[in-house]
Amino acid sequence: MLQILGKASSINVRKVLWTCAELGLPFEREDWGSGFKATDVPEFVALNPNAMVPVIKDGEFVLWESNSIIRYLAGRYDGEFLYPSDPCERARCDQWIDWQASELNRAWSYAFLALVRHSPAHQDRQQIDLSCANWARHIAIVDRQLGTTGGFIAGSAFSLADIPIALSINRWLETPLQHADFPALTAYMERLATRPGYLEYCRNGTP
């Protein structure tokens, strides 16, 4: 059975858990990460040299990096309905998956560490305000895209790209800051509420 190493509160672990829910894929999960088993021990570093969750073990195959994992699972377990084989459709998914990791995450990092994690190293008010403004600007990009598609982030149908994007939106909604009104984004989250994986692993009160 697929093994997932990582605590369920981690946003990156939840990408993997939600993907498994969409695929109907059974798994066993072990708690690793802050508050649980330490990831800097030799046993874990042998699996992921970055000492970060999640890591999966699928038989003898070991993989780390959450976006790589969800792509692998969709490709390995008949997930073409999530991750299309058509090069253009797949590229649209990849575009938003990669943007979430490289651009959106960078925007919210400081504000999240300050306002949710209460990190003493992230309490510069000017930097918090700047991060909140950048975060809102990136959320506005998502809102405009959803207004264009009228459905989901990469098009009219739910895809693998919606998993990391929705988790980042949830993080924004659950962080105590001023939230602008984004009608397309609100409607999008309401559409996602019909999906059990979304309810269990995304919009569950965990930022």
Results as ranks from 00 to 15, higher is better:
V13L: 01
E80Q: 14
F81A: 13
A91W: 11
Q127T: 08
G24C: 05
P176H: 05
R171G: 13
R29L: 13
P26F: 01
G33M: 01
I163E: 02
R137G: 15
S131R: 12
P49F: 02
V53G: 03
P26R: 10
T149N: 10
G151H: 07
W172P: 11
G24Y: 09
P120E: 05
W135Y: 10
H138N: 01
Q123P: 02
I163S: 11
D58W: 06
S66N: 01
G151F: 03
A166N: 00
D94P: 09
Y83I: 13
C20D: 09
R76L: 02
A51D: 13
R203P: 02
T194H: 07
G24V: 14
S10Q: 08
M52I: 12
S159I: 06
G147S: 05
S9E: 14
D143C: 05
P207M: 03
K37G: 07
S9H: 08
H118S: 09
L115I: 10
R14S: 13
W96K: 04
L130G: 12
R137I: 00
R29V: 08
L192Q: 02
G197V: 03
R90F: 11
A187M: 09
E22W: 02
L173E: 08
A107D: 00
C132R: 08
A107Q: 00
P42D: 06
T148W: 10
V116N: 14
S109D: 12
A111P: 00
G6N: 04
A107M: 00
N170Q: 15
A187K: 09
P42N: 08
A157K: 15
N12L: 04
A74C: 15
M52D: 02
Q100D: 02
A114E: 11
G35D: 10
P207Y: 01
Q127H: 13
W99S: 01
R76T: 03
L17W: 08
N204P: 14
I11Q: 05
A136F: 06
Q100A: 15
A140T: 12
P87G: 06
R117M: 12
A114F: 08
A133W: 00
T194I: 09
G24I: 13
R71D: 14
I97N: 06
P84H: 12
C88I: 05
A38T: 11
A133M: 14
C132W: 01
I56M: 15
E103P: 10
W32Y: 15
Q178H: 13
I4C: 00
R92I: 03
R92E: 11
F112T: 05
D143I: 04
A193P: 11
W32C: 13
G35T: 15
D78Y: 11
E80W: 14
N50P: 13
L5M: 02
E43H: 04
Y83Q: 10
L82Y: 01
T175I: 06
T206H: 15
I69P: 12
G155V: 09
I4S: 00
M1V: 07
A46Q: 04
Y77C: 10
T194S: 07
N50Y: 10
L25Q: 09
V53C: 02
P120F: 07
L160V: 05
N67H: 05
A46S: 13
D78N: 05
Y77I: 03
G79T: 12
D124I: 14
W135L: 15
R14T: 14
A21W: 01
N67G: 06
W32N: 01
E103T: 04
L177C: 15
G151S: 04
Q126S: 07
A136H: 11
